[in-house]
Computed example of a mutant assay.
Amino acid sequence: MKQGHTRYRPSGRQLALAVMLSLGGSGAFAQEEHGGAGDLAKAAQNPIADLISLPFQNNFNFNVGPHNQLQDILNIQPVIPIHLDQDWNLITRWITPVISQPPLTITGDREFGLGDINPSFFFSPKQPTHGLIWGIGPTFVFPSGTDKTLTQGKYSIGPSFVAVVNEGPWLFGVLINNVWSFAGRSNRPDVNQMLVQPFVNYNFPGGWYLTSSPIVTANWEADHGERWTVPVGGGFGRVFRIDKQPVNAQLSAYYNVVKPTDGADWQLRAQLTFLFPEKAQPAVAHRR
């Protein structure tokens, strides 16, 4: 459905404000003990941790389209681990984007609605393999967009892989996938896209951390000069408690050194994640 930009924009601002207020903390927050907050921070940073979480990630993409306007994408991406047996977990991740899309043509209108849902499933051993935490499995894209400008119009599938290393205060790794379309609207282009997301985090006592997690994408169906989006940047975050609820708040910025013609120049990413650890002990002891 169509909706003016000013009507949707406050929700993104409110999320960013909530993140920044959370990072600052207040007397109303019951602070984690230093060790517990640090361990929970590492679990929150691990995309295949044995930890239920509910992230709300708002991406402000600046100077998008022919009029250099703001694109706002709120990704709701719950992570739910399933214990298959004593050796293996199945980590499920669902990314549901809610998009405020600027007009892509001179005569077009801004659109607001649901984008294409992207579930991923990672089979991951409960114990690290020679110090490496890893997971592998399929990822899907469903054409659930509520407007033609918010969807690729194709069903896509492909492999996805995550590798994570936890060394002292450092936690780093990479997530990579590639999807190909196999069904959908015949009048829409085929899909052949890769995503590579390296991530590196340095954790301080008390739940504070520095982070860099750029999302590099390649559209193999596009012309060579329009194929890549390559951002650089980073930010900071903190894991703490609001009453008894652990949360992870993060703020970061990325500049696209390579981008398609109408792609964003840079991105501000604000994320608030609700964490639901099963036990009080460190959530990463048996395994980002």
Rank of each mutant, 00 (worst) to 15 (best):
R185H: 13
V165Q: 12
Y155I: 05
T149V: 13
Y155R: 01
M194S: 12
S156D: 09
G173H: 00
F142H: 12
G184N: 00
A183C: 10
R188Y: 12
T151Q: 03
F182H: 07
F140L: 13
G184Y: 01
V179R: 08
G135P: 02
D147Y: 14
L175H: 12
A163I: 07
V164F: 05
K148F: 07
P143S: 06
G158R: 01
K154E: 00
E167Q: 13
I176K: 13
N187Y: 13
F172L: 12
R185Q: 15
L175K: 12
A163T: 11
T146C: 14
L175Q: 14
G158F: 03
V174C: 10
S160C: 08
G168E: 08
P159N: 07
A163F: 11
A163E: 09
W180P: 09
I176H: 11
W170G: 06
K154R: 04
N178M: 12
R185E: 13
N178V: 08
P159I: 07
I176A: 15
V162P: 01
I133E: 07
P169W: 01
S160L: 04
F142T: 11
T139A: 10
P159D: 05
P159Y: 05
N177R: 06
V165N: 13
N177Q: 09
F172I: 07
P138M: 04
I176E: 10
S156R: 03
V164W: 04
W180I: 13
N177F: 15
F182T: 03
F140V: 07
W170Y: 11
V191P: 01
M194L: 13
V164Q: 03
T139R: 09
N177K: 09
S144Q: 04
I157C: 11
P169N: 00
S156K: 04
